[in-house]
Simulated scan of single mutants.
Amino acid sequence: MIRLRFESRLAAPAQDVLAEALTMRGVNAELMPLLRMSYPREAENFDLQQAPVGQTLFHSWLLLGGLLPVDRHSLAFETLHANGFDERSTSWVQRVWIHRRRVIESGKGCIVSDELEFQPRLPLGATLPAALASRVFKHRHARLRKRYGLLSD
């Protein structure tokens, strides 16, 4: 398993950041223009915090640049928390994809953390898959920091 962790201190209330992060529109706001996740029309305004756990919510294309399909993701949540989620999904590329997001109040803002554990299906070693996932999540956190600003100490 490959394990990665990312964290950003944002100058916005945790509830505002979490509310946006738990919509597919919010997920794509973090991913674009690098990637976009497709989703069914009924998921447009769906609050992921209300999703059923332990079952596939829907299947999604991961689209490079928002256009080119590069993976097919089966989105499922293992646990939902008041301050985030534990996603345990699979895809054509990832045998196991575990994404834990937490959004915790901190002073006048919040701390967003993403922990990843994943196992690629192809025996490529850890370097390339880790570099790709790292690039995507560094991009996501840069988008969060740009949108909400940095929390000053």
Rank of each mutant, 00 (worst) to 15 (best):
G109I: 01
D71P: 02
D71T: 04
H81A: 15
A76H: 15
A82T: 12
H59T: 10
F58S: 02
P52S: 14
R95W: 06
G66Q: 13
N83L: 02
G84A: 05
Q50D: 11
G54N: 08
A82R: 15
F85P: 02
L80S: 07
N83C: 03
T90P: 03
L75P: 01
E87L: 02
S60N: 03
H73C: 09
A82W: 05
L63Y: 03
H59R: 14
A82E: 11
T56F: 05
L68Y: 13
S60V: 00
I104G: 03
L68C: 12
V103L: 12
W92N: 07
L80I: 15
L75V: 15
Q50C: 06
A51L: 12
A82S: 12
V103M: 09
R102D: 02
C110F: 12
W61Q: 00
L75A: 06
G54V: 11
S91Y: 00
V93N: 06
R102A: 10
S89K: 00
L67P: 03
L57M: 04
V70I: 15
A82P: 11
S106D: 01
L64D: 11
G107Q: 10
I104W: 02
Q55G: 06
R101C: 11
D71I: 02
S106T: 01
R100M: 03
H59C: 06
R100T: 13
V103F: 07
F77Y: 10
G66W: 10
A51C: 13
G65T: 08
L57A: 10
L64S: 07
R101H: 08
H99C: 06
G65W: 08
R100Q: 13
V53N: 07
Q49A: 14
R72V: 04
G65N: 02
A51F: 03
R72C: 04
G54L: 05
H59P: 05
R101N: 08
S60D: 03
G107F: 05
H73S: 02
S60W: 01
G84C: 07
C110P: 07
S89Q: 00
H73E: 08
L67K: 11
Q94G: 07
C110H: 01
V53G: 13
L64K: 13
H59E: 02
L62P: 09
L64F: 15
L67A: 06
S74Q: 05
H99Y: 03
W61T: 09
W97G: 10
S89N: 02
V93F: 15
G107C: 09
R101I: 02
A51Y: 05
T79V: 10
I98G: 03
C110G: 07
L63H: 04
S106L: 12
S106Y: 02
F85L: 04
L63V: 12
L68R: 15
S74K: 08
V96F: 14
W61A: 01
R95P: 07
V93P: 00
G107M: 12
V96I: 13
R88C: 11
H59N: 01
W97R: 05
W92R: 14
E87A: 04
R95T: 08
W61F: 00
S60H: 01
P52V: 04
P69Y: 00
R88N: 09
T90F: 05
G54D: 07
V93A: 13
L64E: 04
H73D: 06
P69W: 07
R100V: 09
L62T: 11
W61H: 03
E78K: 07
P52C: 09
R72M: 13
E78W: 03
P52I: 11
